[in-house]
Computed example of a mutant assay.
Amino acid sequence: MRDSTGRLLLDHGGIWLLELNKFHADAVHTEQERWLKFFTEGERLDPDALPTWMHTDEMRQAMSTLKAFSDKDRAYHAYQARQNYLREQRSIQRHLQELKTETEQQRIALEQAQAERERAQAEKERAQAETEQERAAKEAALAEIARLKAQLHDQGRMDSMPD
C-alpha cells in the first residue's frame, strides 16, 4: 500500500476488506485462507482441541486473544447480570416495603374504625341508658303524682265524712 507520492505506508501488513459470508473452504492452503477460516469459525473452536490448520504460533496467539476477549465479554455479561439482579432485588424490597407500609396503614385505619365503632356503640348505649333513666324517672314521677292524687282524694273523702 502506497501513499500519493508512492512511498510505502507499511513495510509489513496492509488493509484488507473481506466479505466473510462469501468465504467457504473446507481445507486451508494459504495463510489468507487460514485467517479467513479463523474469522469465520474462531468463536466455535475449542481452544484445547484446535484443528491442524490452527497449529501455528500466530493462530495460537490469535486464539489466546480471542479467549481473552471472550473472557472479558463473559465477565462483562456476568457483571451486568449481577447488577440487574441487584436492581431487581432492590425493586422487590422497595415494593415489599411499600406493601408493608400500606398494610400497616390499613391496619391502623381498621383499628381506628373499630375504635370509632366501639365509641359510637358506647355512646349509643349511654344515650339508651339515659333515655331509660329519664323514662324510669318520668314513670316514677307519674306514679308519685298518682299516689299524691290518690292520697288527696282519700283525704278529701275523709274530710267530707261526718265525724
Rank of each mutant, 00 (worst) to 15 (best):
L99D: 09
L96N: 14
I92C: 01
K100H: 06
K72R: 11
A62N: 03
P47M: 03
L18G: 00
N21T: 07
E43D: 06
A122R: 15
Q32D: 08
A109S: 09
E144I: 00
L110G: 01
D26P: 01
T5I: 06
H95G: 00
E104F: 11
A78Q: 04
S4E: 15
R135C: 04
A146I: 01
S91Y: 01
A75R: 00
Y76D: 01
G42N: 10
R60P: 01
Q106H: 10
Y76I: 00
R7P: 01
K22A: 06
A136C: 02
M1R: 06
A81Y: 00
T103Y: 06
M161K: 09
Q32A: 13
E98Q: 13
R90K: 12
M54Q: 10
Q151D: 09
P47I: 04
Q155A: 14
T65N: 12
W53G: 05
R7Q: 14
E98K: 08
H24P: 00
H24S: 10
G13M: 01
E104P: 03
H55V: 02
S64Y: 07
R117E: 13
Q105P: 02
E31N: 15
L142I: 02
A109N: 05
K22T: 04
D46S: 12
W16R: 08
R135T: 10
H95Q: 12
E130W: 05
T131W: 10
N21C: 07
V28N: 05
E116Y: 11
A25N: 10
Q61T: 11
L86Y: 08
K72N: 11
E116L: 15
A120L: 15
G6P: 08
D71C: 03
I145E: 15
Q128H: 06
L8P: 11
A150G: 14
A137V: 02
E132D: 05
L66N: 01
W16H: 09
T56K: 04
R82Q: 13
D159P: 04
L18T: 02
A140R: 15
P51E: 04
A109M: 05
A146C: 03
Q105D: 13
R34V: 00
E123N: 13
F23L: 05
Y79D: 06
A129M: 10
A143E: 11
M158Y: 14
H153S: 15
K149S: 04
H55R: 11
R90C: 02
R87F: 14
D26Y: 07
L99S: 04
L148Q: 14
T103V: 02
S4Y: 13
H153I: 05
E118N: 14
